[in-house]
């Protein structure tokens, strides 16, 4: 295939991924909407002191497959220490097709991921370099990372309740990239021709993907009130967000340090308070604040979630705002038009 054909294929695959993610979103949404409503664990329902953990020890794995949604909120994945379980007054039985819709969503999600991956790979082949040299490519890669983070987590523990939201975020992200950021496949400026792009930007992509999962959970946390809701429980949401951020934070740290190492090669100093560096630093500080707030100051729930979302907003601003409004040395990020 010629470079143009590959580039065209890449563009088509991105569109395919958008559609597949939307289909997946619908599947997950149906499961959410018609599945069982959840009670938030924090609410004062009948609290059973039975630690959900026994169950998981007995079942051997953390995910007792058959366990109902209500049992899930008792912290099936070993988080029994966090809160007592709640068995609410049982709501009406959901239709039996509801979980199937979720499974269909999962399948669409995986196929969409494959399309997304394909688009990144073909783009890379078309341009003969690492496929994240400009903002379009970068955003497409972050969406890939976010969906991959979600689907891979789903293999180990049940986080299906997040599916609809991760999928819609990824679809919107890709759509945004296609409409606002798209640039034709082509070479990059000499400064980007370095193996450091593989190290620095890949780390930034992975961390951003995970932070996105955390951010989505955080937003849902705030949207969801206490008590009954179709939305996932607050405990689940907070747990997923915390875990995603705990994973992402070291990766982000590494991305920033790798950036500094690269800057030391490319720009003649390892740190120079360039706008992108400033905002990477701010993002780092605020996420560090979140971890401290939770670990040592004992902030849980709302307060911690708000800190986390502020950090996520800084991350997004660094990605979009800095490239578009502030410029600086990173501005060869080549915002499309």
């Amino acid at each position: 295939m010629s470079a143009e054909q590959l580039a065209g294929l890449s563009d088509d695959l991105v569109l395919g991924a958008v559609l597949l993610y939307l289909a997946a979103m619908i599947g997950f949404a149906l499961e959410l909407a018609f599945g069982r409503a959840r009670t938030n664990t924090g609410a004062t329902a009948l609290t059973v002191t039975e630690p959900g953990v026994k169950e998981s020890v007995a079942a051997g794995s953390s995910m007792a497959a058959g366990s109902s949604v209500a049992a899930r909120s008792s912290g099936e994945s070993g988080e029994g220490a966090e809160a007592g379980a709640t068995v609410a007054v049982s709501p009406p039985e959901p239709p039996s097709w509801a979980p199937k819709a979720g499974t269909v969503g999962l399948v669409f999600g995986w196929v969409g991921l494959a399309a997304n991956l394909g688009s990144v790979v073909t783009r890379g082949l078309a341009v003969g370099r690492w496929p994240w040299g400009n903002m379009y490519e970068f955003v497409v890669a972050i969406c890939l990372a976010a969906v991959a983070a979600f689907l891979i987590t789903q293999l180990r523990s049940n986080v299906r309740f997040l599916g609809a939201f991760v999928m819609v975020t990824a679809a919107l992200g890709l759509g945004f990239a296609v409409i606002w950021l798209h640039v034709q496949a082509g070479p990059v400026v000499p400064a980007l021709n370095s193996y450091w792009i593989a190290i620095h930007v890949s780390a930034a992509v992975i961390a951003s993907g995970l932070f996105t999962v955390g951010g989505v959970s955080g937003i849902l946390y705030l949207v969801r009130g206490e008590g009954f809701s179709r939305l996932p429980t607050r405990t689940d949401l907070e747990r997923v967000a915390h875990r995603a951020i705990v994973l992402a934070f070291p990766v982000w740290t590494f991305a920033v340090i790798a950036g500094a190492l690269w800057a030391d090669k490319a720009w003649g100093r390892y740190w120079g308070w360039d706008p992108k560096e400033i905002w990477a630093f701010i993002t780092w500080i605020v996420y560090a604040g979140y971890l401290h707030a939770r670990a040592t100051a004992g902030w849980k729930g709302r307060a911690a979630t708000i800190v986390q979302l502020v950090a996520f907003a800084c991350l997004l601003f660094n990605l979009v705002g800095v490239n578009i409004f502030l410029g600086g040395l990173h501005s060869y990020a080549d915002v499309g038009g």
Binding site: V53, S56, V57, R294
Partner: peptide, 19 residues
């Protein structure tokens, strides 16, 4: 028991192994 907040995740499995 785990002595660090939010780190219970996965300890269930380890605990099962210990048992």
């Amino acid at each position: 028991l785990t002595r660090t907040e939010g780190s219970g995740t996965g300890f269930g499995e380890e605990f099962a192994d210990i048992v």
